[in-house]
Design a protein around this nucleic acid. Structure first.
Length: 146
RNA sequence: UCAGAUGGCUGGAUGGCCGCUUGCGAACGUGGCUGCGUGGGGUGUACUCCGCGCAAAGCGCGUUGGUGAGAGGAAAGUCCGGGCUCCACGGAAACACGGUGACGGAUAACAUCCGCCGGGGGUAACCCCAGGGAAAGCGCCACAGAAAUUAUACCGCCCGUCUGCGCUGCAUGUUGCAGCUAUGCCGGGGCAAGCCUUGGAAAGGGCCUGCUGCGGCGGAGCCCGAAGGGGCGAAGACGAGUAAGGUUGAAAAGGUGCGGUAAGAGCGCACCGCGGGUCUGGCAACAGAAUCGGCAUGGCAAGCCCCACCGGGAGCAAGACCAAAUAGGGACGGCACGUAAUCCGUUUCCGGAUAGCCGUCCGGGUAGGUCGCGAGAGGCAGUCGGUAACGGCUGUCCCAGAGGAAUGGUCAUCUAUCCGCCUUCGGGCGGGGGACAGAACCCGGCUUAGAGGCCGUCUGACGCA
RNA sequence: UGGGGGAUCGUCUAACGGUAGGACUGCAGACUCUGACUCUGCCUAUCAAGGUUCGAAUCCUUGUCCCCCAG
């Protein structure tokens, strides 16, 4: 499996879409993923975004947190990511102080969990689409939130 | 040596692995622009539109590897001043609003900086000050206090005139009577101080003075005078003088002393303070000197205000260019209609406009993209002018340009330094480990945050020579 | 990033530069057999630091935090 090419997320709408997708968090960071929407999807590409709110600290702390997340994403996501997927890494207060190898472990662990959830969700959606308009209301109610 | 004052510089180092942005030149790819050739259309040259092919010279894009560069003194807060851009505007002035405020200079400009003056603090080095005007006007000065701004109403002091001489009760026409009390006299008591008595001390006794209160007499101004009357004292009323004093207050009308006066007063004098003009020094703010005035002007302008000076407004999300989808606009042509509907021209005739569909073209403009955007009030070195801020000249260098936002992630070693233990006081071992903080158009300042480290200069105290 | 506004008891709000007041809440007491209502009393605050002033919540400067607008 070759390395994937990572593009950066730049639009606020992309971040909001990922926020509504699958979310998993660990001590060092929070991960939000969703499928890349159609016009932007490209084979062999994933898209990655980084977020650090003002809870993390001032500008120095936030930039440093994003740099650590960016280094971790370069190490993990290009190897273990799934193409045509958006990833958003959210910094937490512990992102600054967590040892680097622990941070890598956190990311790999929640990445796997999020992938499982995302796969089941897309499978359900596909099944629903095949079932047709029979009782779509029920399915929507149980599933859309994830 | 200790304690301080002040100015400048710096803001961890090295290496391994993996990354980001960008400049330069190279290779490869692409074929967008350009170039060359060619076909067709508008319209024959020119010009222009659509298409095809070639090339690799230039511009551009992508990949690879090479090489160079890549956060700060505050990049921060956004408190001032400018550049730059757009908008408005004939010039200038005035008004309004906002800002600044000793003086001289520096500067593109400033609320900044330098020098100097004045005031305050400190033994000193040195530090701090929004530091114009309160005799242009308005306003405010709570409480307290006689009085808070025209100073004079009040208390008090002093002079004059007049009334008039304790209180209570009863009667009453003036007035009288009774009682009580103060001052006064006599007697004795208590307390305190002094003297004598004693060789000395204590106790006791005596004398005198003062205070206190008891009993009695006397009894309303007191003194002089035989009397009329005069003088003194105290009270009240009225009139005049006075601003010395009046418990307050943050602040009280020049201060202190002597003289002077009925009492007082800058009423007079000396010193200090204040003010006016003059002279001297200084560009000036201002300082000094003698002189005159006897003193007038309480504070607050970071209250309104007055004076002088400055300011057109908005801000790189400014602004410029390219420009999809969708919706809508305009022009032209065609179809439908041109019978009908609505509106306008008063009405008929007649003329014009609007409403439908299709095609072509045009412009505005959103998403998005590109530019603005890094050679500058630039850095460094030298030299000259200037007390300095700063300026002139010469040489040299090119020194960040991102856009969910690069300038790093991680590991190791060292090091300033901190903590603990040991110590032969030389040091050794173990652990922690860099303060504040991240460019967002640029520049000059200010303010705020902040561990340390280095280099000067100066002051005071102590010690030694 | 730029522009504008604000901060007063636990909460909502007043206060010409002169004792920070009111309402609700809380606590205690009274009333009641008990609770509610009512009455009485108490507690509690000027965002922070400087400056002007005799005196600052108010005026000025600096900082902190919050809100709104442009996008």
């Amino acid at each position: 499996m070759g390395r994937l090419l990572a593009d950066h997320l730049r639009k606020r709408a992309d971040f909001l879409r990922a926020q509504k997708g699958v979310r998993r968090s660990a001590a060092g960071l929070t991960l939000e993923i969703c499928a890349t929407p159609q016009p932007a999807a490209q084979d062999g590409h994933i898209r990655v975004g980084f977020t650090a709110s003002r809870k993390v600290g001032g500008a120095v702390e936030r930039n440093r947190a994003k740099r650590r997340l960016r280094a971790a994403a370069q190490a993990i996501l290009t190897e273990q990511g799934i193409e045509r997927t958006d990833y958003v890494l959210v910094a937490r207060t512990a992102t600054l102080t967590r040892p680097y190898d622990e941070l890598l472990k956190d990311l790999a662990q929640i990445l796997a969990a999020a992938h499982v959830k995302l796969a089941s969700q897309t499978a359900k959606l596909a099944a629903l689409a095949q079932e047709g308009a029979g009782d779509g209301d029920d399915a929507k109610r149980s599933d859309v939130r994830g």
